[in-house]
Every structure is written in structure tokens, then in C-alpha cells.
Amino acid sequence: MIQVENLQHTFLIGKRGKEKQVPVLKGVNFKVNKGEIVAIVGKSGSGKSTLLQVLAGFMKAEQGSIKVNGKETAQLNEAESAAFRLRQFGFIFQNFQLMPGLTAFENIELPLKLQGLRKAMRKEKVKKLMDKVGLTEVADHYPNELSGGQQQRVSIARALITNPPILLADEPTGSLDSETEQDILMLIQSLNRELGLTFVIITHDEEVATIAHRRFRMYDGELVKEEA
């Protein structure tokens, strides 16, 4: 499903003219199979967020190849990369990243709007999914009227609404208390089981990593496989 080979990237840090080269990805290789939950664990500054950004196409790596469903994505331009994301990826962010001016319903609807779907069709799809993730009652609430757990559910629903084969999650429980964290992790597990969705979870939280089928540890720009 995802095949990453020899991914390398260096950041330039410091004043102009006196920049220092800091390698963040030192030839990363890994593979994610269809229907798997893969966790990439690491401390801050280990390069795991950079890896996610390169994987998602938010930035280009200097070297290496990323194949998603057989398509080489490492060197796509910005527009191609955006179109690819819209079809292939769903995103779950640490801070939920919901639009404050839109209701829960409208937030979930947004990716469908980007896809150019008609209103009636969007309505039907969003309603069905809201039922599934238990958000029907808060459909008309704005993000600031929702609890952290509800916000993350909305965020997950938004990621799922376009039926992407792969979900990328960046610290999905980072802003939640431990009880809500368990809820969200269970939701991820059940989505994986029932819909066969593939998850790539980036986290520093060992607890989150326990739900993964396979686990990698990022350490100083290098990725090491761990036993689950």
C-alpha cells in the first residue's frame, strides 16, 4: 500500500550565510500493508513529523521514493499532490483543526465540497457517517461548543468522509484526556476492523502505539522496526 525507500532530507538552520545543515531523514525505509495499523513512535525532534509531512506531500524530500498504491508521489507538484491527497488520504490532526466558522456537519462536509459533490448527495453521506461515529446530536454545533473527544470524532469523520484508503494521524490523542483517548483509540480500531482502513499513526505516546499491528521507532532521523 505504502512503500518508502531511502527517504533523505536535510534542514538548513540558522542565519542566512551561516546556515547549518541538519539531516532529519537519513535514508528511511518502510512498508505499510493494506488494512494495517502502523505506528511510528519517537521523541520530539526525532524526525517523525517531517516523515509524515513528506508522506502527505506537504513538503518534498530531497531524495528517495514514496509509492502509494503503486504511484510515485515523492516528486508530485503542489496541485497534483493536493489532488492526490483528496483521493487517497484522510488526515487526523492533534489539534483537530476544525473550521471554527462551520458547524460539525459542515466541517465533515468540507472535503466532499472540494470534490465537487452535489448538496443532496453530500447531505446523505455526512448524515450516515455522523450516525456511525455518534455525532448526530451535535450536527449543528460549532467546534467551540463541542468537547475535545467530540471535536476529534468530527475530525475523524471529516477524514473518513471521502472514503480514503489510508488515514494519516498526527498525535491523534495528544490533546485529549486518558478516558477520551481510549474512546478514540477504540474508534480507530473498530474502523480498521470493520472497514479495513489503513492507519499510519505518528505519536510519542507509547500507549497509542499499543493498538498498532506493527511499530517503528524513529530515532535521530533513522527508522527502526520494533516487535509489536
Binding site: 502527505a56 496541485a79 493536493a82 489532488a83 488520504f89 483543526q97 472540494l114
Partner: peptide
């Protein structure tokens, strides 16, 4: 800025 970032992240093209 943040909203634009989210839009881009979920697949809005720069042209849009």
C-alpha cells in the same frame, strides 16, 4: 492562515 492550511491539507488545490 490556519483555515487555508487545513483546506490545503485536506486536498484543496492552490488554484482553488
Amino acid at each position: 492562515t490556519r483555515e487555508i492550511g487545513v483546506l490545503k491539507a485536506i486536498g484543496a488545490s492552490p488554484k482553488l
